[in-house]
């Protein structure tokens, strides 16, 4: 029967042993363990969340970079096309301009040549006239070396002038 009756002495020792164990563990044991475990749990959760966010961000960045590269490629193509166009245009322009200038130069050269030609013709005529005058003078001098020849000449000239004035008067 004594098995069923609680014993005060044993209760006392139980109080001491359980009490000490409880006190020490409640003060220095379990709270720090559970707190640390909870803290670590929170940390792990945070880290996982961060990793998830980073992953999403990375995916976004990747997408962005792809878009940027695509955009750049497009831009490059556009710029190249434009450059080719521009080049063609410039070339065409330059050709046109060059042909215009050369035409103009050609024209001025032609005009110059014409002018010079005319001037040359003129001076040649003058020369020829002066020369022919000289020659004529010389011939005339030779022809009019005698007195009779000079009188004939004067006569003839006078005739001529008088016919000329008559003609003028009649006219």
């Amino acid at each position: 029967m004594s098995l069923l009756i609680p014993d005060s002495g044993l209760l006392f020792w139980m109080l001491i042993s359980f009490g000490v164990v409880f006190f020490l563990l409640a003060k220095f044991g379990f709270p720090i363990i559970t707190k640390s475990v909870e803290k670590r749990r929170g940390y792990i959760e945070d880290s996982l969340e961060d990793a998830r966010k980073a992953k999403i961000q990375l995916a976004k960045v990747e997408e962005d970079s792809k878009a940027i590269v695509a955009e750049a490629n497009k831009e490059q193509g556009r710029v190249l096309n434009e450059a080719v166009e521009q080049r063609d245009k410039i070339l065409a322009n330059a050709k046109e301009e060059a042909s215009k200038i050369s035409q103009k130069e050609l024209d001025t050269a032609k005009a110059q040549i014409q002018k010079e030609k005319e001037e040359a013709m003129l001076s040649i005529r003058r020369e020829v006239a002066a020369l022919s005058c000289d020659i004529a003078e010389k011939i005339i001098r030779q022809k009019l070396s005698s007195e009779e020849a000079q009188m004939d000449m004067i006569e003839k000239m006078l005739d001529e002038v008088s016919t000329l004035t008559k003609a003028e008067k009649t006219a």
Binding site: D7, S8, G9, L10, F12, W13, M14, S17
Partner: peptide, 9 residues
Amino acid sequence: IDLSLTKMA
């Protein structure tokens, strides 16, 4: 009053 350090204690 028995506070002996018994086997069980």
